[in-house]
Every structure is written in structure tokens, then in C-alpha cells.
Design a protein around this nucleic acid. Structure first.
Length: 329
DNA sequence: CATTTCAGCCAGAGATATAA
DNA sequence: TTATATCTCTGGCTGAAATG
């Protein structure tokens, strides 16, 4: 909406600020919506505002170069990924740096990124660094429907119609406060929830294991776009349809070729030895793998029924033994 | 082309944390 | 306290770039 020169009256509505990226570091994302910073003034012996910060915590990032964002995330010490994850959760962000007490309270950040399938697979294949990040995005496959050598563009009148419609919804949404589901919508939600919450094995799991939260958010957006005060059954159904499309997209993108390298190594070790303790697996992975990544991979293998984990008592800390449950091929 | 330099990688020892 | 789990750090290796 804001990318196009406004042709309509906003009439009091302030659009979120827009940045084209590129996403390069968590600090960069924080800077745009940071809180005011205070510092001690020895002259007057009071706290003074050293930086007014930004009042409006909304930020829309349109990153045409998502590949570069994924690349910088793999660099050591880059905190883009953790920052993005905090943003998704709506948590306040306070990067820990010595001389930079900047923080962001209640961020509201939306990121739209473009990337080709080839690039995505390439950057994802190189590291498993962004487990937990990929499932905070909705993956939507898009391709050119037909060749259009002489595009007409959208007619101004049509565009204005969209703008006005959107503006109406946005203004309305800002007035209604908390949104809840209707009773019928609650029932529908309870109905579909178990299926949504189901774990998926493999790398697809790490991409899709946030289905409930994503669908809930989508249903809220659909409701607001309808100008509704409550989420109704249809909004949930639309959200489910949208979610299904993004999941199918993710399946198409991620289920071809990309494997979880940690899983592969664990499986290889297990096929050679039959069983292994966590320490042995850790050693097999080079003694320097983070426990989260190992645990995640084991959990996925476990939910896929490939391995089972047993806890064995010792005279010290209990030993966790991982068994191969069925033959792999 | 041969040699030197150097950053980056990695195995693995050893230190530290954790659960009972 | 013990044994296991997890993390950190170092020295050696490698291959690419710089130098002669």
C-alpha cells in the first residue's frame, strides 16, 4: 500500500514504515523500531533521553533478496535469526551488546521475501542453522502463469479501490481491541486442532511444526479483512486452506533433496552400532555440536518411529540410549 | 613454477555443567 | 557424590593466495 504513491486520503491512518532490506543483522532490524534510550547526565544528576527512539513499532520489510539474509545468518555471531524469532513471538528484543543498551518493546514486524527455489535449497543445504526460523515464515510457491510481454499494469481506479478497501479494514482493525472466536468457530478450531498440531518427520517437520500458531494468525487476518469483530468458522476455513497451500509449497520445496545432515549422521552411526548413548552420538558428530540441534534431530527421528530413546539409571547422571527401531534403507 | 604465509577448519582432549 | 552430557579451546592440517 505504501510502496505506491498514495493516491487516497489516509485520513488519520498512519501506515507502517517500510524498508526494502536487505536484512543483514539483528541490530539493523532493531534500529528501525528501537525504544528511547536514557542515559545518566552527570551535569544535572538526572536521567535524560539520549535517543528518542521510534514510537511506532510496526515495520514492514520487503526483501527482494532473501537469499542474502539466509547467507548472513550462517555467519558466526550474526544475530539476525534470533532477532527474527523474537519478533515472530512478539517478544521484546534486547540485543546483548556492551555499549549499546538498545531494546525494542512489543515489536510488530512483517517480512515478505522473494527467493528462487534453487537459491533457497542451496543456502538451506549448507547449514541447519535456522531450524525454528523456517517455520516462522509461510512458504508460498509462485510461478508465472503465462507470458505477458506487454503488461498493462493495474488501472489506477482499480488500485484505488483496493487501497480504500484495505484502509477501511486497517482502520477498523485498530479500533476493536481483542478479537476472539465465535462459539461455532471455537468448535471448529477444537475439531481441526489435533491434525494441525501433529508432528511431521524430517526436515518438513522443522518447516511446518508451527501450524497451529500460523493458522490462528491467518484466521485473525481473514477476520479483520472481512471487517469482522470475531473470528468465525469461515475465517478458520480460509486460514486452513491458506495454510494447506503453504504446507504443500513447503513440501514441494523442502522435501526434495534437502536432508537433515545431522539426522543422516546419527542414522549412519546407529546402523553401524545398533545403539548409542548421547555422548557417543555427540562424539560421532565431532564433539562440538550444540545439544539443541542433536536433540531436535533425535526427536524428529523418534517421532518418525525410526529410533527409540531409553533412559538408563546409572550411579551418576542417567544415561540416554538411542536404539534403531527399524531397518533403514 | 616453487615456496611461503595465513586464515579457516576440525578432531579431540579436557573442562564444566547437570541429574540423580 | 558419581557418571553422563555438553561446551570450549587448541594445535595441527589444508588449501588458497601472496611472494620470489
Amino acid at each position: 500500500l505504501t510502496k505506491i504513491k498514495p493516491k487516497i486520503e489516509y485520513d488519520g491512518y498512519v501506515p507502517a514504515s517500510v524498508t526494502p532490506g536487505p536484512l543483514s543483522s539483528g541490530e539493523g532490524l532493531v534500529e528501525r523500531i528501537k525504544d528511547a534510550t536514557m542515559k545518566w547526565d552527570p551535569q544535572t544528576n538526572t536521567m535524560i533521553i539520549s535517543d528518542p527512539g521510534v514510537e511506532d513499532k510496526r515495520l514492514f520489510v520487503l526483501s527482494e533478496e532473501l537469499a542474502s539474509a539466509f547467507k548472513v545468518m550462517q555467519r558466526e555471531g550474526n544475530n539476525l535469526s534470533p532477532t527474527l524469532r523474537c519478533y515472530w513471538d512478539g517478544k521484546s528484543v534486547a540485543p546483548i551488546t556492551k555499549n549499546n543498551p538498545i531494546r525494542v518493546t512489543d515489536p510488530h514486524v512483517c517480512i515478505t521475501g522473494h527467493i528462487t527455489n534453487e537459491e533457497l535449497l542451496k543456502v538451506l543445504d549448507e547449514g541447519e542453522h535456522f531450524t525454528g526460523l523456517t517455520n516462522r515464515f509461510l512458504w508460498v510457491c509462485a510461478k508465472r502463469g503465462r507470458l505477458q510481454p506487454l503488461p498493462n499494469g493495474i488501472h489506477d481506479n482499480d488500485l484505488i479501490r483496493f487501497q480504500e478497501e484495505y484502509l477501511r479494514c486497517a482502520k477498523f482493525a485498530q479500533t476493536i481491541g481483542e478479537v476472539s472466536r465465535t462459539k461455532r468457530a471455537d468448535d471448529r478450531w477444537i475439531d481441526v486442532y489435533p491434525e494441525l498440531a501433529k508432528d511431521h518427520p524430517g526436515i518438513l517437520g522443522s518447516v511446518c511444526n508451527r501450524a497451529e500458531a500460523q493458522t490462528a494468525r491467518l484466521s485473525l487476518i481473514f477476520a479483520l479483512l472481512c471487517g469482522a469483530k470475531e473470528i468465525d468458522v469461515c475465517h478458520i476455513d480460509w486460514a486452513l486452506a491458506a495454510w494447506e497451500y503453504t504446507m504443500k509449497s513447503a513440501e514441494w520445496i523442502f522435501d526434495t533433496g534437502v536432508k537433515d545432515p545431522v539426522q543422516d549422521k546419527i542414522l549412519k552411526f546407529l546402523t553401524e552400532n545398533g545403539k548409542a548413548s548421547l555422548t557417543e552420538i555427540h562424539k560421532a558428530l565431532g564433539n562440538n555440536y550444540q545439544k539443541e540441534k542433536i536433540q531436535l534431530s533425535i526427536k524428529r527421528l523418534e517421532s518418525g518411529g525410526v529410533v527409540s530413546v531409553k533412559v538408563v539409571k546409572t550411579s551418576g547422571r542417567p544415561k540416554q540410549i538411542i536404539y534403531l527401531t527399524k531397518k533403514t534403507n
